[in-house]
């Protein structure tokens, strides 16, 4: 199934929290500031409804996204107020993919954990949490995974300041 087909199906089964669809487009020649958009299409979802949405995607017989391929977050820039949560789903039965995106505010970076839906999300969420400072609610094991437990700051945020030293070791 291609992207449009997946979107139609999602709407048909009434998957919760769909905010919109973003597809790549050409540059508008008249608007000089418009950069256009390349790459993949994705579905924009309300972060509060993520768990239900993913459950729908997983359980629907025509979509059947059995695999959570990737879960990450993105900080689009310092002047942006929002963080993106990226989910990439893969269906083995139907051999199609779906990129899902949800936006949360940087101030109150809270999102529901989807580890209940896909066990694979657990470690990815731990990584995103320590790298972006996102709190995944109801996460079964909210420890650091790649960084030491006493690490200060969220390295993949754009406003991250490199530490001068770590445990007495100079980092400069």
């Amino acid at each position: 199934m291609d992207f449009t087909g997946i979107c139609d199906r999602l709407k048909a089964i009434g998957a919760p929290g769909i905010l919109g669809v973003d597809e790549p487009r050409e540059k508008n020649p008249e608007d000089k500031k418009d950069l256009g958009r390349a790459g993949d299409s994705f579905v924009l979802v309300d972060p509060e409804e993520l768990e239900g949405f993913l459950r729908f995607c997983r359980d629907d017989t025509e979509l059947q996204f059995e695999l959570l391929c990737d879960l990450t977050a993105t900080d689009p820039g310092n002047d942006d107020e929002e963080l993106w949560l990226n989910y990439n789903l893969l269906s083995i039965a139907h051999k199609h993919r779906l990129a899902v995106k949800a936006k949360i505010s940087k101030e109150n970076s809270n999102a529901p954990s989807v580890a209940d839906v896909y066990r694979a999300a657990q470690w990815h969420e731990r990584e995103a949490a320590e790298m972006f400072g996102i709190t995944y609610r109801n996460h079964p094991d909210p420890r650091h995974i790649l960084l030491p437990d006493d690490w200060i700051g969220y390295p993949l945020r754009k406003d991250y300041e490199y530490p001068k030293e770590y445990r007495g070791i100079s980092c400069e």
Binding site: L35, P76, N86, R97
Partner: peptide, 23 residues
């Protein structure tokens, strides 16, 4: 060009995914 793309390829160990975002 601005945009985002996810490409997964079959690595010897499984799917190697690159998710790149450009402005």
């Amino acid at each position: 060009p601005a945009g985002e793309a996810y490409v997964g390829i079959e690595n010897p160990r499984g799917e190697l995914g690159h998710y790149v975002v450009s402005d």
